[in-house]
């Protein structure tokens, strides 16, 4: 028997391939899976969240102290305006709009879970007429009518659950979101589509109540001035005007509404009602 110890070929047990090649393949694969999962989940959650009965939504937020109404003269006026508008917006049965007024200088208004709409003094002070205020109000009511807050909340919770599942985080971010929901109520982000859907619904209500859509024009003029002013002062609009955080400002928002109204033969201009707010 002869003995030999030949060199054995390299690369049989250990691959010669550069590890970064496999890494990039895996990374791309993982990203594709995540993107698909996010799209499928957010679409289906968005669809099913709309089916959640409004009464469940109300119950879910009923324990949050921040949603208790602080009655004041301004709050009552705003509530009366909301009632006038919502009467023309054929809201689903059992849907109740509750308006809150805050004496804060923040330039913002937002709609949140359970049919609650918040108005800040800062925003109302900038508005020229009741019509413009009605446009904001109708826009926020439209969010509630189309169930945008519950959809946004559902998507947020789902994405956090997914993130904690993917990263294997032990503390569930979704649980924390639900616990701290009172803090995140005002931070709800609606998509561009949801914003324009609400704009259209709002302009319908505006025309039904006032017989013209002058309020929408005035509102978007105010928005343009605010953002131009902020740009000139070289400040980020985000810090000063929270409304631009929660409402993506698109240049053509008014143009879209103008065309929409013209198609329906609505009056673009008309009498406006003065805003009788005493601060």
């Amino acid at each position: 028997m002869r003995f030999e110890n030949p060199e054995i070929e390299d690369g049989i047990n250990v691959s010669k391939e550069h590890p970064l090649k496999e890494f990039s393949q895996l990374l791309i694969g993982l990203l594709v899976i995540i993107v698909v999962a996010v799209l499928v989940l957010s679409y289906s959650v968005g669809y099913f969240a709309q089916k959640i009965p409004f009464s469940y939504e109300e119950k879910l937020v009923s324990h949050i102290d921040a949603l208790n109404v602080e009655e004041s003269a301004q709050q009552k006026k705003l509530q009366a305006l909301a009632d006038r508008l919502s009467a023309k917006m054929d809201l689903p049965e059992g849907m109740k709009i509750t308006v809150h007024y805050s004496n804060d200088a923040t330039v913002n208004a937002f709609a949140t879970m359970g049919g609650h709409v918040f108005f800040f003094k800062g925003l109302i002070e900038k508005l020229p007429s009741e019509n413009a205020l009605a446009m904001v109000m109708a826009h926020e009511i439209a969010h509630i009518k189309h169930r945008h807050p519950v959809v946004a909340m559902g998507k947020g919770v789902t994405m956090l659950t997914l993130a904690s599942f993917v990263t294997g985080a032990s503390g569930s971010g979704a649980g924390e979101l639900l616990i701290n929901e009172s803090m995140t109520l005002g931070l709800m982000k609606f998509s561009r589509d949801q914003e324009s859907q609400s704009d259209l619904t709002a302009v319908h209500a505006l025309n039904a109540v006032y017989g013209n859509v002058q309020g929408a024009k005035e509102l978007f003029d105010v928005f343009s001035e605010l953002s131009d002013g902020a740009k000139k002062a070289n400040k980020t609009t985000a810090n000063e005007y929270e409304i631009f955080l929660s409402h993506p400002r698109t240049e053509n928002r008014w143009e879209k509404l103008r065309d929409y109204s013209q198609q329906r033969g609505w009056n673009l201009k008309g009498e406006t009602t003065a805003l009788d707010f005493r601060f």
Partner: peptide, 13 residues
């Protein structure tokens, strides 16, 4: 009959 011994071969994964 072993005519030639070629040493250890191994495979792992």
């Amino acid at each position: 009959r072993v005519v030639k011994h070629l040493g250890l071969v191994q495979g792992s994964t």
